[in-house]
Design a binder for these strands. Structure first.
Lengths: 125, 125
DNA sequence: CGTCTAGGTTGACAGTTGTCGAAACAGTGT
DNA sequence: ACACTGTTTCGACAACTGTCAACCTAGACG
């Protein structure tokens, strides 16, 4: 499949390929919305939002599942499920090193989302 | 109920009360997550993301439902339901003027979300 | 008043999501 | 090989979500 102009993929977004001017500057096309909405959806759960924050703010930029799980009153499988959701949304990456699995934030997509929500468009002359 | 220190409400957030340093800078507390996650959740649907954009980018800063509805292949009640979700998340405001209802973006909460997602960590490998 | 139009609300339905316990998988160490 | 620990997958279930058809409300206009 050859790359088509204008047809962005999740891979492009996590890689940081520019795609999205702020929400308020121009109307988000349906394709873009379909691509970005899942990322917002993934952040739309309090547990996942905290997980995302714990991972992104962890020293060294990565967090061990063994440190994440005990921070919630939830079962291991449930935390694992939420982490999978974040992974599939392209927001984090997982890597196994020996016994433990480490999660790391993917800044590319997060930056896209932040840009999209930017409201400082008072009057772009 | 008297106002407690540190207990933020949705009203505070839409008003733009500062609350949230970037996700990656410090761990988001459970209370904050519970307060902000619904906003992300509201944006986590392609239709609502487009609606939000159409409203925020509309000339004059407001959009009439009569202009929003025909932009989708969805029934009126469905669009109305999505708009209600955005309203309850604190992302938009509605105002009836005569026959028509106009929606307007509430920049306060959007700015909070954008700040939260900001990644000022230049490390990208 | 009556009627028309623009939106919102209600009720119902299929599909999805959050959660857990049980089981499976991956690595370490004995 | 075996047992032990950490993590993910599977199967199940209640709760929630997106959608529509039907109905209701608000305002405009005779």
């Amino acid at each position: 499949m050859t790359k088509q102009a204008g047809a962005l993929t999740l891979t492009d977004l996590t890689a940081g390929t520019p795609c999205c001017p702020p929400l308020a500057r121009q109307r988000v096309p349906a394709e873009t919305a379909a691509l970005l909405a899942p990322a917002f959806k993934a952040l739309g759960d309090p547990v996942r939002l905290q997980l995302m924050s714990m991972i992104a703010s962890a020293p060294g930029g990565e967090a061990c599942v063994c440190d994440l799980t005990p921070a919630f009153e939830l079962s291991g499988p449930t935390i694992s499920h939420h982490l999978k959701t974040l992974r599939e949304a392209g927001l984090v990456d997982a890597e196994r090193r020996g016994t433990w699995v480490y999660y790391r934030a993917r800044p590319g997509l997060l930056r896209q989302l932040a840009t999209l929500l930017t409201m400082d468009t008072p009057a772009e002359t």
